[in-house]
Design a protein around this nucleic acid. Structure first.
Lengths: 339, 339
DNA sequence: CACAATGATTGGCAATGCCTATCGTGATCT
DNA sequence: AGATCACGATAGGCATTGCCAATCATTGTG
């Protein structure tokens, strides 16, 4: 008990608890099982890759810790006591569980393995996911992407609450707990009914859309971005508030007004028979991937980010080309590009 | 790797196995569970009775061992990763099993607790057990006696095979692996049909029984002891071989012959209406308790032995008294006592 | 900006675990 | 019977581990 006073400070905490301190190292359990299996200290030691004295000593220690005799040693045989037999079944379960843990950990050790819960905003999901899921599957065969579609605020909430691992959004989140990486920039396009007066123009001025622009319901970032691009603080009195981009497009097709749609949705929009035109001031949004700064599988997020960015690169290049061609056709050269 | 060569002898064995050596101390699992439960290193450390740095370091070590991140540390919260959640359920089971082991061991630590498998020979069991089971139950309330009745050879075999913990026998077993302790000495009595010529004598000479002595079947030690007492090497031609002492007594009662019965069976014998007489040369057998020399619960065996010996002491004293009274009645004094 | 809270780091020390070498005791073989 | 073998126990030495106190670094708060 003199050791209690060896240190200057407080009495070590662990001395304040009861006398029962079953250290019960896991290693000892393996030794126990080995001896029970082989009924021979030497063979058991060999199977545990330790020397026989080590196993002898550790087993004796275990017996002293437990306060019971585990094996009856005899010059010709080593037999587990009945109590030991009872303990063995528990030990087997415990060791199996721990082996299962190790196996699980080993299989999960690769950050590019497992499930990645990926949030995505609704104005992006239906158009981006079909493009990138197959390449992701190919590039990261062991990574299962679990998409979750919701508006930005909800995604960020779930991200912060560890219900998502990453999210594809089109805004910069507040706070330092989340970090982002831009993936690609998506131009907005003017969407017009075929018989709209502006439909005759090759290129539409953002402000010209303001009078009859239709926007999404609250919560969609696209709503705010579209309004901002048109120079509006809020929707005009009679503006409709569509619940989804598909609805919005159908509204436009039906002649209720105009709108801005993100470039990736162009295909779907054109199918509905509306007219799409580039914007004069090249309003756009940047899609980013966001994750918690502390998220341990950063490598998985970055791999996903890389695949998406690569997959989207041709689209971005094509957009540039089309844009440039359009510019040249109008004889405006590069000046407008950087307005 | 230089450490491989530090020692003179062989390369340490444990270096020859694979690189995966998940030490995975049980302590670490408790730390893991504590942090997962409290979601706070300080509180978890307190609940584990260790300092916070210790827990921090050990947990980091565990993470490195497993190759995965177990918790996402954040300035305001500590959240288990999804992989960790999977591991936790396994860890909980493992720790519970080990706690169960410790509890089992603790409850079994008292050698006077649990089950004692006690063999007993058939010529003793039916007469001794009713006398001693109640006192044993009272003296050793936590010890459950599990009696097993069989002939000596079988008992010893089962004892050596760890199927019995101790045995009550009336011979000295061979070999050094078993040890015995004498409990009491039981006189033999002559058992005669009431109309037998010898029935008139107060005391019977052992040799006089030889002509028509009946004995038990092979394997019963009483058979050999009875024959020896009567000076016979084997049974006479017409001798019956009864399967049990009760049968033997009934044989005698029916007039088929005489026999020797052990003192404790006197009560049962008298009920069947036969005549019992003390023997002139005081043939007797000593009942012993036998157990494996290496049996760890020697204390339990000795406690049982003590209780039985004490319980039998009055009988032995009474036998001595009766004997002495008989001697005095015959005017032989003490001389015959030590013949 | 000082302060409190919290997890990470550091340095030193005792305990643990392992090894080799040796011993003690039965069993086995000339 | 004496030598030898098999096997578990013990002893001494050494590297590793685990723990603690003290301190640092970061972040949120009055």
């Amino acid at each position: 008990m003199a050791s209690l006073l060896l240190r200057g400070g407080k009495v070590p905490l662990r001395c304040s608890i009861g006398p029962d301190d079953p250290a019960m190292n896991l290693r000892d359990l393996r030794y126990l099982l080995a001896v029970a299996e082989h009924r021979h200290f030497g063979k058991a030691a060999e199977s545990c890759r330790v020397s026989q004295p080590t196993l002898s000593v550790q087993l004796r220690k275990l017996e002293e810790e437990l306060g019971i005799v585990l094996f009856e040693r005899n010059s010709k045989q080593v037999v587990p006591t009945p109590i030991c037999e009872l303990l063995l079944s528990h030990a087997r379960v415990a060791v199996a569980e721990i082996d299962a843990m190790a196996a699980l950990a080993r299989s999960a050790m690769d950050p590019l393995r497992g499930t990645l819960r990926l949030g995505i905003i609704p104005t992006l999901g239906p158009y981006l996911l079909p493009l990138v899921l197959a390449p992701l599957q190919e590039a990261l065969p062991d990574l299962e992407i679990e998409p979750w579609e919701d508006v930005t605020a909800t995604l960020l909430e779930r991200l912060r609450g560890h219900e998502l691992d990453a999210a594809l959004i089109a805004t910069e989140p507040d706070g330092t707990d989340l970090v982002t990486r831009p993936l690609f920039t998506e131009p907005f396009l003017a969407a017009l009914p075929p018989d709209h007066p502006l439909a005759a123009q090759k290129r539409i001025g953002e402000d010209d859309l303001a009078p009859d622009v239709l926007v999404l319901a609250d919560g969609h970032c696209l709503r705010d971005q579209a309004l901002a691009a048109c120079g509006l603080a809020g929707p005009l009195g009679g503006s409709l508030r569509a619940a989804s981009l598909a609805t919005l497009i159908n509204m436009v097709a039906a002649g209720y007004g105009t709108t801005l749609i993100p470039g990736l949705a162009a295909g779907a929009a054109q199918d509905s028979g509306i007219v799409l035109r580039p914007l004069r001031q090249k309003a756009s949004r940047t899609v980013r991937i966001a994750w918690r700064a502390a998220f341990p599988r950063r490598a998985a997020v970055e791999a996903v980010a890389r695949v998406i960015a690569e997959r989207l690169a041709p689209y971005a290049a094509a957009a540039e080309r089309d844009d440039a061609a359009l510019d040249r056709a109008r004889g405006q050269g590069h000046l407008a590009r950087h307005a």
